[in-house]
Design a protein around this nucleic acid. Structure first.
Lengths: 342, 342
DNA sequence: ATTAGCACTCAATAACATAGAGTGCTAACA
DNA sequence: TGTTAGCACTCTATGTTATTGAGTGCTAAT
């Protein structure tokens, strides 16, 4: 489809644009890259590349800018991958985190590291509790007014909301209720645990039923609360270093986008294959991100998704660096997860 | 110091400027407010007010803008307080939250409500764990690889980090260690719990010492982790509705400021009296907030600080609304806290 | 003491000119 | 036949200048 020279020119255009953020013209190109042909020839090739939809001319007298289709070709075919030692160094930080007990923290810290290494915004996302199965539930009395409900799901999420007790319940009774709940609810999908189910169960424990009735509401409120989307943002303000966000309206809409947890979550969870996925501008399902690209890593063990890490930036993103960094970081994370969850 | 007419004019200037964000001149003033005198007279008075430092002229041919000193007078002397029914309505949301078990959530939700009611950014801040005393510590075995360490402090903070176990320890032994730690550490200030202390203690439990040694590191890592500053930001993007942040650099520096957890924390914790404090522009200790104002509520029971809520915005803040809202919300929160903590 | 009148200031806006980077087309060339 | 120099043309960005209007301080009259 594209001869070698066209590919070389397209690559040069993309790399230059990623670097400078300015539309790149034939003269600049021939000066800056060793293409072996004159600007006039480059111009002809560029006209062809535009006809094919790989580059776009913002206006008649401007240079060319890569299109989403252009970036896609670049990413799929001829993007150079860096193997930077410095990255390895920084990733050692992750090693220090081996002792992190909870996957949310791992995602939080990793996304911070990603944003630092890439200079874009990074997003960590834990799988939604609602979508997982209950592995273990346990009520722990703390003092006369509080107990902690510890919940562990099949994908390793640990939640432990505090539940306030209005009536005093003996530790022993809490223990009995706890064992009972764990016995009956174990293995159920969290979203299937509904009020009526627990109400039915509470009838079985007749001598406690009045107590149980009272804490049902609390337990449900807590189940609901822990079902909040766990999303970790880092490096959001990095966008101010990018010329595309010098326009206050652009910056505003990007920042507002990052406040939309539901949107981000459904955007990112749409990646279900393990490994890296890249979605470029118009390829994204939502209008709001049509001029952004995401590089997303999905972490799976067998068929269970344990979390997502994503780097989000303008379509003029330094894919090469981002993908390299993501690969490196992902390697470390998969090691951690493998040690822990199987 | 100021005659009645000067006060009326100053008040008009401040209210107009808070509303319009544009320097206000004598003609506008006489048209928009019923001051009973001509623009020329107003001009003379304004010249005096400027000499006294209450207002400032950005440039020769512009109107006047209130100075920090002007706002201070306004806030202290003649700011009208609203008693809005709508606020009461919205505050009912807080009532719904009575079941919140943890003070962090209360601060988180309240700050969200504050930002919604005021249209400024709101900050919730929990007291630092490091500064509190240990009321209760408890280790709860969860599965063969994890236990939860539940920590309750004297000011009602509950933390429960997951601790990963590398060696299997029987539930019974965990129980023994837990009781022992609680027994010895109870009442100590968290920052006084140092490695050497626990090491000394571990010697007492000679028959466990090898086990304890191993989990000391874990416990300390966790103590360190839960000592992170708990700060909750809401409504940050509200600033984009304010003309002062139409300048991308201004917006950037404000947003970056809100990322500085340590700075914000030390700024806000400098308010130690219970009730409302207002700090205006240059009154703030840090250079970074010299063109911002904060309205901060400190929540105390007896002499223990339970948390802070703060609204932050430009010095041209609608103090009247913010203070009114804060008063209302604070009333509800103090009720909740009183019910819970005494 | 107050106010109308007036000359003056200065930011913001608009209107216009210029420079510069880039293009497409044509004709000459290897 | 593919490549390239030359050239007229386009369009943004930038800088310059003129104009407008809100606002002031001062003076003199009320």
């Amino acid at each position: 489809m594209l001869n070698e020279r066209k590919l070389k020119i397209l690559q040069a255009i993309i790399q230059d644009y990623i670097e400078t953020a300015a539309p790149v013209g034939s003269r600049t190109l021939s000066k800056r890259y060793d293409l072996g042909v004159s600007p006039a020839t480059i111009r002809n090739e560029m006209a062809d590349l535009e006809d094919l939809g790989f580059i776009i001319q913002p206006h008649t007298s401007a240079g060319r800018v890569p299109s989403d289709k252009g970036y896609r070709l670049y990413v799929d075919q001829f993007m150079p991958l860096k193997k930077i030692e410095a990255i390895e160094q920084d990733c050692l930080v992750l090693y220090l985190l081996q002792e992190i007990g909870e996957i949310e923290q791992l995602l939080q810290y990793s996304s911070r590291i990603l944003s630092q290494l890439t200079n874009y915004a990074a997003i960590g996302l834990a799988p939604q509790v609602k979508e997982s199965r209950l592995e273990h539930i346990q009520l722990v009395p703390v003092d006369s007014n509080h107990m902690v409900m510890i919940i562990i799901t099949d994908n390793g999420i640990i939640k432990k909301p505090v539940i306030r007790l209005n009536d005093e319940i003996s530790d022993n009774n809490i223990q009995i209720i706890s064992n009972f709940l764990n016995d009956r609810l174990h293995g159920l999908s969290i979203k299937n645990i509904e009020t009526k189910l627990i109400k039915a169960l509470s009838k079985e424990l007749t001598h406690f039923s009045n107590l149980i009735e009272k804490i049902i509401f609390e337990i449900f409120q807590s189940l609901d609360e822990i079902s909040n989307i766990d999303i970790f943002l880092n490096g959001v303000m990095n966008i101010f270093n990018l010329p595309e966000y010098n326009d206050i309206l652009k910056a505003k809409s990007f920042l507002k986008l990052l406040e939309e947890k539901e949107l981000l979550s459904s955007l990112i969870t749409s990646f279900e294959e393990g490994g890296l996925s890249i979605s470029i501008g118009s390829e994204n399902i939502y209008e709001e991100v049509k001029d952004c690209s995401l590089v997303t890593a999905t972490y799976k063990i067998d068929d269970t998704i344990l979390g997502w890490l994503s780097v989000i930036g303008p379509t003029r993103m330094d894919y090469s660096t981002v993908v390299s960094v993501m690969n490196q970081v992902s390697k470390f994370i998969m090691e951690l997860l493998n040690n822990r969850y199987r």
